[in-house]
């Protein structure tokens, strides 16, 4: 079976996110007065062949823990979509 894996990697809450702060500042300069708490992360998509959805999720989780996210500074979310 083939799956499309969507990975969302975000800086851990509580850690300074200067990119988010710069984004928030720029939005306010542009007049978007209601915008606040901007966080900037990373989205990764990949194809994954696996026997089942559970297997795909577990494999994707291992990828995140090993390479795609830094366990010290980042959190990740997974979404596995059957093709």
């Amino acid at each position: 079976m083939s799956f499309r894996v969507h990975v969302r990697v975000m800086p851990r809450t509580g850690l300074l996110d200067p990119q988010g702060l710069a984004g928030a500042h720029a939005l306010s300069v542009l007049g978007f007065a209601g915008a606040g708490d901007v966080r900037v992360g990373r989205a990764i998509e990949l194809e994954l062949a696996a026997g089942s959805r559970e297997e795909a999720e577990s494999e994707a989780r291992r990828m995140c823990e090993r390479l795609l996210a830094n366990p010290v500074t980042e959190d990740f979310q997974l979404d596995v979509e059957a093709r």
Binding site: P11, L16, Q19, V72, T73
Partner: peptide, 17 residues
């Protein structure tokens, strides 16, 4: 060395960008 966990912690984007 930090990514390899031979040292603790991580190096992140400079605060001033």
């Amino acid at each position: 060395l930090c990514e390899a966990h031979l040292l603790p912690g991580a190096l992140m984007r400079n605060a001033g960008l």
